[in-house]
Amino acid sequence: MLLGVYDNPDATLNVTKSLKEKGYDVYDVYTPFAIHNLDRVLGVKRSRLSTAAFCFAMTGLVSAISLQSFTSYFDWPMLIGGKPFLHIPTYIPITFELSILFTAFGMVGSFFVVNKMFWGRNTDIIDLRVTDDRFVIAVNVHDGKTDVNELSNIFKKGGALEVRERINEL
């Protein structure tokens, strides 16, 4: 794997774009903050987290309505102030809150799962400075197929501060 280290998000974006156009196998780009459009350039598929969010919201909604109607209508109806046992309007606030609660926790849970993030995971980071002020483009080098010299030239022409190799995948 060949790494190009940059200090400028615009250069990172441009180099990634030209690498993609020339058909290099760009493994990933590591940045200290989200660079607008970089995900599209890299061809990251639109995350399905928003669909997941909707499903979690519906789960919360159904659970809340079931909980409230089961307890106050089916299980133990209780006359309070002459109000109906199955009184949907007063269920709205709790239903709303639980939908939000399920969405938030479900989404964040899925986010951690798809990113394989968990507490205490040991980080094999591509470059220590990548969380500070450096941008790293990692390109997979395939033996015989990838022209390493040309690749490192593109890196340098794009303004790379350093170009180095790395054996292990992240």
Partner: peptide, 24 residues
């Protein structure tokens, strides 16, 4: 390190991160 949950600054992670921030 424990609290960072293995964050490595990958663009894929950032992409999902942006989406989850927006939804949250």
């Amino acid at each position: 390190n424990f609290l960072s949950m293995g964050w490595n600054g990958s663009t894929r992670t950032w992409h999902r991160y942006e989406m989850i921030s927006l939804i949250l």
